[in-house]
Structures are given as C-alpha cells and as structure tokens.
Simulated scan of single mutants.
Amino acid sequence: MNFPLILAILLLVSGAIWMVDAVFLRKRRPAGAKDPWWVEYGASFFPVILLVFVLRSFVAEPFKIPSGSMIPTLQIGDFILVNKYTYGIRLPVINKKIIDISQPQRGDVMVFRYPEDPSVDYIKRVVGVPGDRVAYQNKKLTVNGKPVETRKVEDYLHTERLYYSKQFVEKAGDVEYRTINDEDAPSFIPDAAQFPFRENCLYNNSGVVCTVPEGHYFMMGDNRDNSRDSRYWGFVPDENIVGKAFFIWLNFSDLKRIGSFN
C-alpha cells in the first residue's frame, strides 16, 4: 500500500472541496442554511490531513520494526521515529530531493526503500558511503583497508529462543553501536542477487568486498548473521533514502525501551 500517495490524494480531494465551497458554493447558500454533508466532512478533514501530510512528509514519520535484523539496537515491535529532513527535503510521493542538507554518515541507522521492491521500507545501518571499499571477511568489518574499531562485550541473550550470540561494540566516527553474530553461521554469502554495480563486489568463502559507487550506500544489519542487506541485494541509491531513525517512541512488550536508541 502506497500510504503517501493515498494521503496526498485525500489532501487534494478534501482541499478542493474546501476551496470550491469557500469561493463559490457558500455564497449561493441561503443565510443560516446547513452545509451539505460532503462539504462539512471535506472542510473538517482538510486541516487534519494537511497537518499529518506536512509532518509525515517533511518532519518525522513513524515506523514499526517487523524483524530482528537490527537486534540488539532495535527489537521486533519497536515503534520508531524517522527524521525526514536530516538528509535533505524531498518531495512527497516521488521522493525527489529538492534541498540538500547533509549526507548519510557511517554509523547512521537509515530507513530506505528496498531496492528490489521500492514499495517496501527497510531499516539498516550505514557502513559504507560513496567511494568506500567495504570488506566483511570472516565476520570482521573493514572500511578502506582499516578495521572498524571493535571490542568484545558480554554475550547477547535472545530471550525469545534462549540462546546466546557473540556481542561487540563497533565505532564509526563518533557513533558507537552494538552488533551480534553467531559462531556457527557461515561467513560466505550463499545467494547474492544480480544487482546494479555487482561488478563492484567480490564474493569469496570469507564473505564479500565491495566498492561503493557514487550516489549509493552500503547497508548492514546489526544482527550480522540474520540480516539480508547490501551483502545480498546490493547498494542503496540516494533516491531511495527515506530518513534517519533517531527515537523509539513505543514498544508494547517492553515499555522501558521508550526513548532509548542503543
């Protein structure tokens, strides 16, 4: 479902009703006459729809986390807010950038339109920006020949299935975040797709090495062995960017997560 398009259509219809009534029809109605039901509803919904449209398109948009690919940073069932203007102002529906503000940085958690199906929104972490050479070999992340700063911390307990994963703290610039991986999971990528700029990637038994093309980003989930990300389906083009995730505003299963983003 293309919710932004539906919202835009509702805004245009309700706005047209409100304008036609204000400019033409209202003057022709007898004094004290009741507004027709379609005018009453259209005029009432228009300011509400306009406010939602503006906030959702240019300020912040809510999303729900459906999978565990970003564990431990984000849990299944987290409701998050995504900043829509951090990376620039984009026209609603067509997602075309009209004002450039900043670019995604390594370590950012970003929502984007899935390259293989742009009707689906994905969330992953930026690990490679245009021009970077990203290597994920034997579960070690290297960017431009330099290992990403990493330290081992206590193992992570998956409470839903009661097993442990190795847990690490990585640092990209000034951003620290936790990642996990499973010792018994293979390092190689078994079923990488044929994606644009696939010639920029080299796959081997240890993992993958990719050079990020201009205007694109290399994304990975923090749950490294349970995330289908750029290692499998390629790079995210700039025009697919939705915004930067920054706040957890609700989780029905764990209210303590409200306000956190670790």
Rank of each mutant, 00 (worst) to 15 (best):
Tyr85Trp: 15
Phe112Thr: 09
Asp100Ala: 12
Val93Trp: 02
Met110His: 00
Pro92Val: 07
Tyr85Phe: 13
Lys96Arg: 13
Lys97Gln: 15
Asn95Thr: 00
Pro92Arg: 10
Gln103Phe: 04
Val111Pro: 01
Leu91Asn: 13
Lys97Tyr: 04
Gly107Trp: 02
Asp108His: 05
Asn95His: 01
Asn95Ala: 00
Val93Gly: 01
Tyr87Val: 09
Val111Thr: 09
Val111Phe: 04
Tyr87Ser: 08
Lys84Gly: 02
Asp100Glu: 13
Gly107Gln: 04
Phe112His: 07
Pro104Tyr: 10
Ile89Leu: 15
Thr86Asn: 07
Ile94Ala: 12
Asp100Lys: 14
Pro92Gly: 07
Lys96Gln: 14
Asp108Phe: 05
Tyr85Glu: 15
Lys84Val: 05
Tyr85Met: 14
Phe112Lys: 13
Pro104Ile: 09
Ile98Thr: 00
Gly88Pro: 08
Arg106His: 02
Ile94Glu: 10
Ile101Gly: 04
Ile99Lys: 03
Val111Ala: 14
Val109Asp: 07
Ile99Ser: 02
Asp100Gln: 14
Lys84Pro: 03
Lys97Leu: 08
Met110Lys: 02
Arg90Asp: 10
Asn95Leu: 00
Val109Tyr: 09
Asp108Trp: 05
Ile101His: 03
Gln105Trp: 02
Met110Trp: 00
Lys96His: 11
Ile98His: 00
Val93Glu: 04
Thr86Glu: 11
Gln103Gly: 04
Gln105Arg: 10
Thr86Val: 06
Arg90Leu: 09
Ile99Asn: 01
Gly107Tyr: 03
Ile99Gly: 02
Ile94Arg: 11
Pro104Lys: 11
Ile99His: 02
Arg106Pro: 03
Ile89Glu: 09
Ile99Phe: 07
Gly107Thr: 05
Gln105Glu: 15
Ile89Asp: 08
Pro104Arg: 12
Leu91Gln: 13
Asp108Thr: 10
Ser102Asp: 05
Ser102His: 04
Ile98Met: 01
Gln103Met: 06
Ile89Trp: 11
Asp108Gly: 12
Val109Cys: 08
Pro104Met: 11
Phe112Ser: 10
Arg113His: 12
Tyr87Gly: 12
Gln105Thr: 06
Arg90Thr: 14
Gln105Pro: 03
Lys84Arg: 15
Lys96Leu: 15
Val111Ser: 04
Arg90Glu: 13
Asp100Thr: 12
Tyr87His: 12
Pro104Leu: 14
Thr86Ile: 06
Phe112Ala: 10
Gln105Phe: 03
Asn95Ile: 01
Arg90Ile: 09
Arg106Thr: 03
Arg90Phe: 06
Arg106Gly: 05
Val93Gln: 02
Thr86Met: 10
Arg90Val: 10
Phe112Glu: 10
Asp108Val: 08
Ser102Glu: 02
Ile89Pro: 06
Gly107Glu: 00
Met110Tyr: 00
Pro92Gln: 12
Ile99Thr: 10
Asn95Lys: 01
Lys96Val: 12
Gln103Lys: 08
Asp108Pro: 11
Ile89Cys: 06
Asp100Ser: 15
Leu91Thr: 14
Met110Cys: 00
Ile98Glu: 01
Ile94Lys: 15
Tyr87Glu: 15
Gln103Ile: 05
Ile99Tyr: 04
Val109Met: 12
Gly88Cys: 13
Met110Ser: 01
Arg106Asp: 00
Arg113Ser: 14
Phe112Leu: 10
Pro92Lys: 14
Val111Leu: 07
Gln103Cys: 04
Tyr85Asn: 14
Ile89Val: 15
Phe112Trp: 05
Arg113Thr: 05
Lys97Arg: 15
Lys84Trp: 02
